[in-house]
């Protein structure tokens, strides 16, 4: 847990120090990628709760999900299909599902 928090803090500090931001044109891609990352993290926590956490699956899922989400939204944008909201909806639903699972697990434990 400590590792996770320390990693988060280091990442945040790096983000503050880096001089560039996301160009406005790519902000939607980036936000979808961010949603995918959050989804992966919550999925990982859920897996840890149920005891079948695998770091390989977790890491590969984390990067593949975010890259694929951004890529799909990009392609959709090019094809005139607004996949942005679809991706946000899908990830949002999954995040809340996982959150519910984690909450139930923690409540049962204590």
């Amino acid at each position: 847990m400590i590792y996770a928090v320390v990693g988060l803090l280091i990442g945040g500090a790096l983000g503050f120090l880096v001089p560039f931001g996301i160009p406005a044109g790519y902000s939607s891609l980036f936000s979808v990628a961010l949603m995918a990352c959050l989804d992966s993290v919550f999925g990982g926590i859920k897996a840890a709760c149920s005891g079948n956490f695998d770091d390989k699956i977790f890491i590969s899922g984390f990067f593949t999900n975010s890259l694929m989400a951004a890529f799909l939204v990009y392609v959709g944008d090019r094809l005139g299909i607004d996949l942005y909201f679809v991706a946000l909806l899908a990830f949002g639903l999954r995040i809340f599902n996982n959150l519910g699972f984690i909450r139930q697990h923690l409540l049962k434990k204590h």
Binding site: M1, Y3, A4, V5, V6, G7, L8, L9, I10, G11, G12, L14, G15, F16, V18, G21, I22, A24, S27, F30, S31, A33, L34, C37, L38, S40, V41, G44, I45, A48, C49, G51, F53, D54, D55, K56, F58, I59, F62
Partner: peptide, 27 residues
């Protein structure tokens, strides 16, 4: 929780996540 398996990997992932969060927040 059973995070013990890959502490370093989790730290890495959390770092990336934190980085992205802050960048997104800033932009």
């Amino acid at each position: 929780m059973h995070f013990e398996k890959g502490r370093l990997s989790i730290a890495c992932v959390c770092m990336v996540l934190g980085f992205m969060l802050v960048i997104q927040f800033r932009s």
